[in-house]
Design a protein around this nucleic acid. Sequence first.
DNA 1: GCCCCTGTCTACCATTTGGTAGACAGGGGC
DNA 2: GCCCCTGTCTACCAAATGGTAGACAGGGGC
Lengths: 195, 195
Amino acid sequence: MADTTAERILEEAMTAFGTRGYEGTSLDDLARQLGIRKQTILYWFPSKDTLLEAVVDRCADEVTNRLLRGLEGVEDGFGRVEAMVRAMFRLAARHPAILGFLREVARLGPPSSTQLLARIEPLIERASDFLQVEMDAGRMQRHEPRLLLLAAYSMVTGMATEADVLRAFGEEPTLPSLLRRRDELLSLLRAALEP
Amino acid sequence: MADTTAERILEEAMTAFGTRGYEGTSLDDLARQLGIRKQTILYWFPSKDTLLEAVVDRCADEVTNRLLRGLEGVEDGFGRVEAMVRAMFRLAARHPAILGFLREVARLGPPSSTQLLARIEPLIERASDFLQVEMDAGRMQRHEPRLLLLAAYSMVTGMATEADVLRAFGEEPTLPSLLRRRDELLSLLRAALEP
DNA sequence: GCCCCTGTCTACCATTTGGTAGACAGGGGC
DNA sequence: GCCCCTGTCTACCAAATGGTAGACAGGGGC
């Protein structure tokens, strides 16, 4: 958020990597978009790889914070699932490229994907444990917790991004449409989870 | 399938584009992997863009055929949903890169994404109509048909690909694991759709 | 035997890319 | 006033990339 040069570079790089891809983004393009020279980027981040690592870290932080804040004060069973979905869609609305970046990192594979996942794994663990407890207590229909999470994650990233695919499915990349998609996804999850 | 040079190039290009990305794949790499020279590729496909278009067409054909064949003879309500999911997972098992390629095309945006979607749209239309009929007849829980399709599509591509993400969710990229993911996804869909 | 057509290759080329070397501006410490 | 440190820039560079031009091998038609 601070308007330092390094921050501005990170922000723009995340957007660019998330939309045009890592290999599809040249340092010169990035610099032009920022109104600076490529060498200034290389001053702050000694190589393109280093820049990617930094963006990954920043992205992990943002996702983590957003999810944790979304969960604050929400205690009951399905409410917590709903809170997480809402948090992710809020993220997608405010910063559309971030989910695209997540997907790009997954595609790039190690070492970036390993780095990102190491940061996110605790969240997965926690969510998985929570689901297990709820299911054991009979407050949710039984499913494999981790696979359920994977399915939910796929749905969220898919439904929040993929502008062109959306168009084929009759959706416009607008905010009201995004909210409709969120509500539909919640309705699906509710049908699949509530007893 | 014919072992002509053009076919071999298309096959290898789909795999490469789907795993390393379009910009991440150079014609020289591609040629090396095929044991030929780059100029032979440019003989069959006058430019990299042209090659991409051809791969998109081929991919659309393959997905269409696979889905239509999967649906043959399956008439009852949820059975058709299940048949489509099974067909997609069969595709993923036999040709893992193809779903990655779908995703890559979505990321690349127009004109490739437009081209692909124009070919697939009839399928979406048909599936959407079918779901609407089933819901109207009370044989399925009510959801927005097109959004439901989008969610299902996202889940399938997400759960069938993303090897590294899978690892974080405790899944190995093996065939038995793939089948477990398929069954879990079907169980989710069943819970959300059957009355 | 000759010709031409198809398919692959060698030889290049201009542009782009990530990265290095070093000039230079400006501002604070002393 | 001088120094040094920080941050940005100009000037390059070697490698890689998509693409062009054209040589060449071989096989079928006649």
